[in-house]
Design a protein around this nucleic acid. Structure first.
Length: 436
RNA sequence: GGAGCUAUGGCACAAUCCGGUACUGCAACGGACUCGAAAUCCGUCGAGCCGCUUUUGGCGGUGUGCGGGUUCGAAUCCCGCUAGCUCCUCCA
């Protein structure tokens, strides 16, 4: 949610910035007109209410003194009728203003490149392990034997998409045997790393109410992408960002505690509406996947430094796993609804010779905090909105996919990244194992 | 899932039956006393939200868990909801 006062005072600037994000200026004009009418109505009705309060006191006083107040009561009956009408009108206007405002995306930070889509994104840096070129598949050209992660996963018997589809539906899967073990090793490793960086580990509800979905900005605009619990005003979370960020909704945080950092592993549920036919195979685009999420609550003047360090926290996971990646800054057209600035981290997938998103780290500034009312008291004891940040650290399934390709050997086995071996009882390789 | 009870400032509580300025204490803040502190005394104290404004402030509105209704006027009466507690039932 944007600051209405700021919108009123900076119409030209906001019009431009909304346009950068693909929002027509008409939306803002309509919003401001309704807002003006709303404030006019408030003034009218508040004057009437002030009169009525005074008159009501007089009636109470007269009644105590056994005096007749029927003239006043008659007059106030008319005033109350008028107030009722104006109140109803104001409520209507409130709803309309709220509804319009709730559909406006966050304004991009000034350094964010303006563009309509991902083509305007800017690469920030590229990283690869020093020994990467020594790996069997890291040749200039992709070797023919290199299999896509889902092919090698099925060949090894550790990913079962067919039975996932049979029991659940398309875009669901079973991890089997060493596959399940690898997934578990990956997220345990990630959680341990984040905990070392000072993130408090959480296990959150994975079903949340509508207020929570509104608070982080998924609702009202993106209801079609969410798995709603049938018949209830609850939703299976599309990301742990929702329960983690809403943890403090409606609360005032002690300034000395900031920044506060949370991390959690959770399943994430997405309908992937509009993605029909895209990435239909493998671990890349599922209706349910595991993700380790990071969330921060900060003071406004520290949020951009914290964005950098959160990005570094996500990168460090890939570095320790020895997976090549690059970091890009998303353009205004490619960013999520709530974000003011977003870095995507994309991991190298050698079989397709492309980078694939594995993490998205955003500063939403006060956009979410305003929706869910998370504040702290500044030096002058005044309430200020905190800034909230969120980032994947990382998408677990996609990390497994990246391991299956980047650590694949010519014989079809997978070398387990060294850092994960202690999480897998010292196991060094994934080889085909029979199962039933 | 069933029954009963409860919800009032940062905390504890009163007013609810029978509608009329939301009581008091603690905490907090300011001051006196003191070298300083404690104790004591005096004073201030409804957070948040909204609107107007001559904007370190002032005025008004709202605000007794949430949403409606009745009324000139609702903490109080009526309806709906949510959360917590107790008991029953069920359960990993």
């Amino acid at each position: 949610m944007l600051d209405m006062k700021y919108l009123r005072k900076n119409v030209t600037e906001v019009t431009q910035k909304l346009q950068d994000r693909g929002v027509s200026p008409d939306n803002l004009i309509e919003l401001l007109n309704l807002d003006q009418e709303r404030r006019d109505t408030i003034q009218k009705v508040e004057n009437l209410k002030a009169d009525r309060n005074i008159e009501s006191d007089k009636i109470a006083y007269a009644k105590r003194n056994q005096e007749d107040a029927s003239q006043s009561i008659l007059a106030m009956q008319r005033v109350s009728q008028e107030i009722k009408k104006l109140d109803a009108r104001q409520l209507e206007l409130n709803d309309q203003v709220q509804n319009l405002a709730a559909h406006l995306p966050n304004l991009a930070a000034s350094e964010v490149p303006v563009g309509v889509d991902e083509s305007a994104n800017i690469e920030q840096r590229v990283w690869e392990p020093t020994d990467y070129q020594k790996r069997p598949h890291a040749l200039l050209e992709t070797p023919e034997w290199l299999k896509a992660h889902y092919e090698v996963g099925e060949a090894l018997g550790i990913l079962d998409f067919e039975r996932g589809a049979k029991v659940s539906g398309a875009r669901f899967l079973y991890y089997v045997g060493d596959g399940a073990r690898l997934e578990r090793a990956v997220y345990n490793f990630m959680l341990d790393e984040h905990r070392k960086e000072g993130y408090t580990e959480m296990i959150t509800p994975i079903v949340v109410n509508d207020a929570a979905m509104f608070g982080t900005g998924q609702y009202p605009k993106f209801q079609d992408d969410a798995y709603r619990v049938s018949g209830l005003a609850q939703t299976y979370i599309p990301t742990a960002e929702v329960p983690l960020t809403n943890y403090y909704s409606g609360e005032t945080l002690p300034a000395d505690d900031l920044p506060i950092k949370f991390t959690a592993l959770s399943p994430s549920f997405r309908k992937e509406a509009g993605a029909a036919g895209k990435d239909t195979r493998g671990l890349i685009r599922l209706h349910q996947f595991n993700k380790v999420e990071m969330v921060k609550f900060t003071k406004p003047d520290q949020s951009y430094a914290e964005l950098e360090s959160m990005t570094a926290n996500a990168e460090s996971i890939l570095q320790k796993l020895g997976l090549p990646y690059h970091v890009i800054m998303l353009s205004t057209g490619d960013m999520g609804f709530s974000a003011a600035k977003t870095y995507d981290i994309e991991v190298w997938m050698p079989q397709q010779s492309l980078y694939r998103e594995i993490s998205s780290v955003s500063n939403t500034e006060a956009f979410q905090a305003r929706r869910m009312h998370i504040t702290y008291r500044d030096e002058d004891n005044k309430l200020q909105l905190v800034h909230t940040l969120n980032g994947s650290g990382l998408a677990v399934g996609r990390t497994v996919a990246a391991i299956l390709e980047n650590y694949q050997n010519e014989d079809g086995s997978i070398t387990i990244p060294e850092i994960l071996r202690s999480y897998m009882g010292g196991q060094e390789k994934l080889v085909a194992t029979p199962h039933y």
